[in-house]
Design a protein around this nucleic acid. Structure first.
Lengths: 156, 156
DNA sequence: CTATACTTGAGCAATCAGGTCGGGTTTCCC
DNA sequence: GGGAAACCCGACCTGATTGCTCAAGTATAG
């Protein structure tokens, strides 16, 4: 599980898609204009998202992209995994490269932390983000006040 | 909050340091040999860790590094933040670059996710990792069975 | 049949990961 | 005092990735 701007771009674009999906397919040109992401870069990202079946494409005029599943079934973890290459997490790759008594220390450790972060992000769905966005629509930089209505999923 | 192999190397090295700190300062050469991380790379990482006061150095023969605080007070989030440059998370940088009604959408979104991941990793301490390591010492690739004794902190 | 929109691939500048090299400086120890 | 053990530091290098452009497609509505 890597976490860079690339995944952020992808999640941002998917959120925009979810927010505009009510009126048929959403064009990359639209997302590009609204989110200020270059069209060509979006094309690359959505190529991956399509191959991983997170979105569906409609070609021709009036075409664009639709979510392949309901927003409530699409997780942030899925989106990030779709666009970011996986990471090996260990220099020995699980093999016998390191053979002393510290052999699998890093391996186990990172599998654990990986699983934890991934587990967390896989419980945040696009629908959660849409909801979040709608309840705090335009606004300025946002007061830090929180209510219990935020729900347990994405709050700390 | 970025999450790459760099941060992993740093956490791995700090864990090794914590595991061997009982017998005085730990040398980078030792960490390098045990964890198979290049000495020069470790020097770079520990330079940052020292400047952020996560470790203390002892120069001269018999020298090395010590933790600057107790392991129970050192969090994974601190370590990762020390070695990985921060990330801006948004193309408008909080400024008036984007001015339509989607102005702060990505900004708020990422601040939120950032805070969440960071919040999680800041509740995992080095002491937790040491404990984990001691209870499951050498072993092979580790069976996926889990018990409640794992505790709530770093399990999913 | 044309405009719209997705699809694919080559290529490119900048940055970063991960590491090498070559020098320092501080301090212990003989 | 002179090594040697260790940290310290900065330049530099290589390869991969990021983020992007350009150019050429293909499918389809009208």
């Amino acid at each position: 599980m890597r976490l860079t701007t690339k995944g952020r771009f992808a999640v941002t674009a998917m959120l925009d898609l979810a927010l505009h999906s009510s009126k048929g397919p959403v064009t990359l040109a639209g997302i590009s204009a609204r989110q200020r992401i270059s069209l060509s870069y979006l094309e690359q990202l959505f190529g991956k998202l399509r191959r991983r079946s997170l979105v569906e494409s409609v070609r021709g005029p009036g075409g664009g992209y639709n979510l392949a599943k309901e927003a409530s079934l699409l997780t942030v973890a899925e989106i990030i995994n779709a666009v970011e290459e996986s990471i090996d997490s260990t220099q020995c790759g699980g093999k016998e490269n390191c053979h002393d008594n510290h052999r699998c220390m890093t391996h186990d450790l990172w599998e654990e932390l990986n699983a934890t972060v991934h587990g967390f992000l896989s419980r945040v769905t696009l629908a959660d983000l849409v909801e979040k966005q709608r309840t705090k629509p335009v606004s300025v930089v946002a007061p830090r006040a929180r209510t219990r209505a935020d729900g347990p999923t994405i709050t700390v």
